[in-house]
């Protein structure tokens, strides 16, 4: 099977290129091959949409503060202050 033919029928390779393309890092040749694959593959087209959506979700999950501020335990802070003061007095 030729190189081109492999990608045309290969969803594994196509989805690999889809995820890579999202960062704009595929070659011209890969781009063409992917386009040809997508002409006849609706499942991979759906994969593109979902994969993009997942990136958005991850970003929004990671970047949104949880709502409640997570604060460091006060006792731990006090102990930490003591440690720092001790170090400072040594010098």
């Amino acid at each position: 099977m030729g190189e081109l033919k492999r990608i045309i029928y290969n969803c594994q390779q196509a989805t690999f290129l889809i995820d890579k393309r999202m960062e704009g890092k595929i070659t011209f040749r890969e781009r063409i091959e992917l386009r040809i694959h997508l002409i006849q593959c609706d499942v991979c087209k759906l994969y593109i949409k979902q994969s993009e959506k997942i990136n958005e979700m991850i970003k929004s999950l990671l970047k949104t503060p949880t709502g409640l501020e997570i604060l460091l335990d006060d006792t731990f802070k006090d102990e930490l202050q003591v440690k720092i003061d001790t170090q400072l007095n040594k010098n």
């Binding site: 492999r6 029928y9 290969n10 969803c11 594994q12 390779q13 499942v43 759906l46 994969y47 949409k49 979902q50 959506k53 997942i54 958005e56 979700m57 970003k59 929004s60 999950l61």
Partner: peptide
């Protein structure tokens, strides 16, 4: 053998498609 999606793991339409993470 051919790199096609296996049916049981292939993407299907589900809630994600209309979901707005923002």
């Amino acid at each position: 053998a051919d790199g096609h999606w296996n049916k049981q793991n292939a993407p299907q339409h589900f809630g994600l498609d209309d979901y707005d993470p923002l």
